[in-house]
Protein backbone atom coordinates (compact mmCIF):
# COMPACT_ATOMS: atom_id res chain seq x y z
CA UNK A 1 0.00 0.00 0.00
CA UNK A 2 2.07 2.84 1.31
CA UNK A 3 5.00 1.76 -0.79
CA UNK A 4 6.69 5.12 -0.51
CA UNK A 5 10.18 3.98 0.51
CA UNK A 6 13.08 3.11 -1.75
CA UNK A 7 12.73 0.19 -4.16
CA UNK A 8 13.79 -3.32 -3.08
CA UNK A 9 17.04 -3.30 -5.04
CA UNK A 10 17.97 0.10 -3.68
CA UNK A 11 17.28 -1.14 -0.16
CA UNK A 12 19.53 -4.11 -0.82
CA UNK A 13 22.44 -2.06 -2.11
CA UNK A 14 22.04 0.61 0.55
CA UNK A 15 22.61 -1.94 3.26
CA UNK A 16 25.98 -2.99 1.96
CA UNK A 17 27.88 0.28 1.99
CA UNK A 18 25.95 3.57 1.91
CA UNK A 19 23.94 2.65 4.99
CA UNK A 20 26.24 0.01 6.41
CA UNK A 21 24.82 -0.85 9.83
CA UNK A 22 28.15 -0.79 11.63
CA UNK A 23 30.24 1.84 9.88
CA UNK A 24 27.50 4.28 8.89
CA UNK A 25 24.69 3.84 11.39
CA UNK A 26 26.79 2.70 14.36
CA UNK A 27 24.20 0.13 15.32
CA UNK A 28 24.64 -3.29 16.81
CA UNK A 29 27.90 -2.54 18.50
CA UNK A 30 27.78 -5.31 21.12
CA UNK A 31 28.24 -8.27 18.78
CA UNK A 32 30.50 -6.22 16.54
CA UNK A 33 32.98 -5.81 19.34
CA UNK A 34 32.41 -9.00 21.26
CA UNK A 35 32.53 -11.84 18.74
CA UNK A 36 35.14 -10.55 16.31
CA UNK A 37 38.09 -12.24 18.04
CA UNK A 38 38.21 -14.77 15.23
CA UNK A 39 36.60 -15.24 11.85
CA UNK A 40 34.61 -18.39 12.63
CA UNK A 41 32.76 -16.78 15.51
CA UNK A 42 32.15 -13.62 13.50
CA UNK A 43 30.70 -15.55 10.57
CA UNK A 44 28.47 -17.70 12.79
CA UNK A 45 27.20 -14.56 14.41
CA UNK A 46 26.51 -12.96 11.02
CA UNK A 47 24.60 -16.02 9.89
CA UNK A 48 22.47 -15.98 13.03
CA UNK A 49 21.78 -12.27 12.63
CA UNK A 50 20.90 -12.77 8.97
CA UNK A 51 18.41 -15.53 9.79
CA UNK A 52 16.77 -13.53 12.55
CA UNK A 53 16.67 -10.32 10.56
CA UNK A 54 15.10 -11.91 7.47
CA UNK A 55 12.43 -13.72 9.49
CA UNK A 56 11.66 -10.73 11.71
CA UNK A 57 11.46 -8.38 8.72
CA UNK A 58 9.11 -10.72 6.85
CA UNK A 59 6.79 -11.17 9.84
CA UNK A 60 6.78 -7.48 10.66
CA UNK A 61 6.09 -6.58 7.07
CA UNK A 62 3.16 -8.97 6.83
CA UNK A 63 1.50 -7.69 10.02
CA UNK A 64 2.33 -4.04 9.43
CA UNK A 65 -1.31 -2.99 9.06
CA UNK A 66 -2.22 -4.45 12.44
CA UNK A 67 0.50 -2.67 14.40
CA UNK A 68 -0.55 -0.14 16.99
CA UNK A 69 1.92 2.72 17.36
CA UNK A 70 2.47 2.43 21.10
CA UNK A 71 2.92 -1.34 21.08
CA UNK A 72 5.07 -1.37 17.96
CA UNK A 73 8.47 -1.83 19.60
CA UNK A 74 7.19 -4.53 21.93
CA UNK A 75 5.80 -6.50 19.01
CA UNK A 76 9.11 -6.19 17.13
CA UNK A 77 11.09 -7.31 20.12
CA UNK A 78 8.87 -10.29 20.86
CA UNK A 79 9.01 -11.37 17.20
CA UNK A 80 12.77 -11.12 17.26
CA UNK A 81 12.99 -12.99 20.57
CA UNK A 82 11.08 -15.91 19.08
CA UNK A 83 13.46 -16.27 16.15
CA UNK A 84 16.50 -15.78 18.37
CA UNK A 85 15.31 -18.67 20.52
CA UNK A 86 15.11 -20.82 17.39
CA UNK A 87 18.57 -19.76 16.25
CA UNK A 88 20.00 -20.36 19.71
CA UNK A 89 18.55 -23.86 19.96
CA UNK A 90 19.71 -24.78 16.45
CA UNK A 91 23.24 -23.58 17.22
CA UNK A 92 23.29 -25.44 20.52
CA UNK A 93 22.18 -28.61 18.75
CA UNK A 94 24.48 -28.59 15.73
CA UNK A 95 27.43 -26.33 16.62
CA UNK A 96 27.69 -26.87 20.36
CA UNK A 97 31.29 -25.66 20.67
CA UNK A 98 30.54 -22.45 18.77
CA UNK A 99 27.37 -21.91 20.76
CA UNK A 100 29.38 -22.11 23.97
CA UNK A 101 31.98 -19.73 22.61
CA UNK A 102 29.40 -17.15 21.58
CA UNK A 103 27.68 -17.59 24.93
CA UNK A 104 25.31 -14.75 25.83
CA UNK A 105 25.87 -12.88 22.59
CA UNK A 106 23.40 -15.06 20.68
CA UNK A 107 20.48 -14.18 22.99
CA UNK A 108 21.70 -10.60 22.94
CA UNK A 109 20.73 -10.46 19.26
CA UNK A 110 17.23 -9.74 20.64
CA UNK A 111 18.27 -6.27 21.69
CA UNK A 112 20.52 -5.73 18.70
CA UNK A 113 19.55 -2.28 17.51
CA UNK A 114 20.07 -3.15 13.83
CA UNK A 115 17.14 -5.52 13.66
CA UNK A 116 14.78 -3.28 15.60
CA UNK A 117 15.88 -0.34 13.47
CA UNK A 118 15.21 -2.23 10.22
CA UNK A 119 11.78 -3.37 11.46
CA UNK A 120 10.98 0.22 12.33
CA UNK A 121 12.46 1.97 9.31
CA UNK A 122 11.66 -0.49 6.55
CA UNK A 123 9.58 -3.53 7.37
CA UNK A 124 6.77 -1.73 9.17
CA UNK A 125 6.28 0.60 6.22
CA UNK A 126 6.96 -1.45 3.09
CA UNK A 127 5.86 -4.71 1.51
CA UNK A 128 7.38 -8.16 1.75
CA UNK A 129 9.75 -7.78 -1.19
CA UNK A 130 11.37 -4.59 0.01
CA UNK A 131 11.57 -5.94 3.56
CA UNK A 132 13.28 -9.14 2.44
CA UNK A 133 15.80 -7.35 0.23
CA UNK A 134 16.45 -4.84 2.97
CA UNK A 135 17.13 -7.59 5.50
CA UNK A 136 19.51 -9.42 3.15
CA UNK A 137 21.36 -6.23 2.25
CA UNK A 138 21.69 -5.05 5.82
CA UNK A 139 22.87 -8.42 7.03
CA UNK A 140 25.44 -8.69 4.26
CA UNK A 141 26.66 -5.25 5.24
CA UNK A 142 26.81 -6.40 8.85
CA UNK A 143 28.68 -9.56 7.86
CA UNK A 144 31.21 -7.54 5.83
CA UNK A 145 31.80 -5.19 8.74
CA UNK A 146 32.25 -8.08 11.16
CA UNK A 147 34.56 -9.81 8.70
CA UNK A 148 36.75 -6.73 8.34
CA UNK A 149 37.16 -6.34 12.08
CA UNK A 150 37.65 -10.05 12.68
CA UNK A 151 40.26 -10.24 9.91
CA UNK A 152 42.36 -7.50 11.48
CA UNK A 153 41.98 -8.87 14.98
CA UNK A 154 42.61 -12.50 14.17
CA UNK A 155 45.60 -11.91 11.90
CA UNK A 156 47.30 -9.48 14.26
CA UNK A 157 46.21 -11.17 17.44
CA UNK A 158 46.69 -14.84 16.65
CA UNK A 159 48.49 -14.88 13.29
CA UNK A 160 45.71 -16.95 11.76
CA UNK A 161 42.68 -16.41 9.53
CA UNK A 162 39.79 -18.87 9.77
CA UNK A 163 42.25 -21.01 11.71
CA UNK A 164 44.79 -21.07 8.86
CA UNK A 165 48.21 -19.90 9.98
CA UNK A 166 49.25 -16.83 8.01
CA UNK A 167 51.90 -15.25 10.18
CA UNK A 168 54.26 -17.85 11.53
CA UNK A 169 55.15 -17.64 15.21
CA UNK A 170 58.84 -17.76 14.30
CA UNK A 171 59.03 -14.21 12.94
CA UNK A 172 55.76 -12.65 14.10
CA UNK A 173 55.24 -11.99 17.78
CA UNK A 174 51.46 -12.16 18.14
CA UNK A 175 49.77 -9.10 19.60
CA UNK A 176 47.75 -10.83 22.27
CA UNK A 177 45.99 -7.59 23.08
CA UNK A 178 44.15 -7.63 19.76
CA UNK A 179 41.98 -10.60 20.70
CA UNK A 180 41.27 -9.10 24.13
CA UNK A 181 38.61 -6.43 24.75
CA UNK A 182 40.84 -3.34 24.25
CA UNK A 183 41.87 -4.61 20.82
CA UNK A 184 38.24 -4.69 19.76
CA UNK A 185 37.65 -1.05 20.66
CA UNK A 186 40.90 0.12 19.09
CA UNK A 187 40.42 -1.87 15.87
CA UNK A 188 36.87 -0.64 15.39
CA UNK A 189 37.95 2.94 16.18
CA UNK A 190 40.66 2.91 13.55
CA UNK A 191 38.55 1.10 10.95
CA UNK A 192 35.74 3.59 11.50
CA UNK A 193 38.21 6.43 11.05
CA UNK A 194 39.55 4.72 7.93
CA UNK A 195 36.10 4.31 6.39
CA UNK A 196 35.28 7.93 7.16
CA UNK A 197 38.58 9.06 5.69
CA UNK A 198 38.09 7.03 2.50
CA UNK A 199 34.63 8.46 1.93
CA UNK A 200 35.57 12.06 2.65
CA UNK A 201 37.10 13.20 -0.67
CA UNK A 202 33.93 12.21 -2.51
CA UNK A 203 32.10 14.86 -0.55
CA UNK A 204 29.98 12.52 1.51
CA UNK A 205 29.46 13.63 5.05
CA UNK A 206 30.74 11.20 7.64
CA UNK A 207 27.41 11.04 9.33
CA UNK A 208 26.81 9.16 12.53
CA UNK A 209 23.08 9.29 11.97
CA UNK A 210 22.29 6.23 14.03
CA UNK A 211 23.94 7.33 17.26
CA UNK A 212 21.34 7.46 19.94
Amino acid sequence: MANDGPAPLERFLNGILPENPVYRQLLGMCPTLAVTGNMKAAMTMSAAVMFVMICANLITSSIRHLLKPHLRILVFVLTIATFVTIADRVLAAYLYQMSKELGPYIPLIIVNCIIICRCEVCASRQGLGAAAFDAVGQSIGFALALASIATVREILGAGTWFGITLLSESWWPVWGIMVLPPGAFITLGFLLGGVNWLSMPRGKKSAGCGVR
Binding site: A184, G189, G193, N196, M200, G208
Partner: peptide, 17 residues
Amino acid sequence: KPLQGAGITLLVAGILA
Protein backbone atom coordinates in the same frame (compact mmCIF):
# COMPACT_ATOMS: atom_id res chain seq x y z
CA LYS B 1 38.52 14.81 11.12
CA PRO B 2 37.82 11.16 10.20
CA LEU B 3 38.13 10.12 13.82
CA GLN B 4 35.80 12.75 15.21
CA GLY B 5 32.73 11.47 16.98
CA ALA B 6 32.51 7.73 17.36
CA GLY B 7 36.02 6.94 16.17
CA ILE B 8 37.90 8.76 18.90
CA THR B 9 35.36 7.60 21.47
CA LEU B 10 36.09 4.00 20.58
CA LEU B 11 39.83 4.58 20.78
CA VAL B 12 39.47 6.16 24.21
CA ALA B 13 37.25 3.26 25.25
CA GLY B 14 40.00 0.91 24.13
CA ILE B 15 42.51 2.67 26.35
CA LEU B 16 40.00 2.61 29.23
CA ALA B 17 39.49 -1.12 28.68
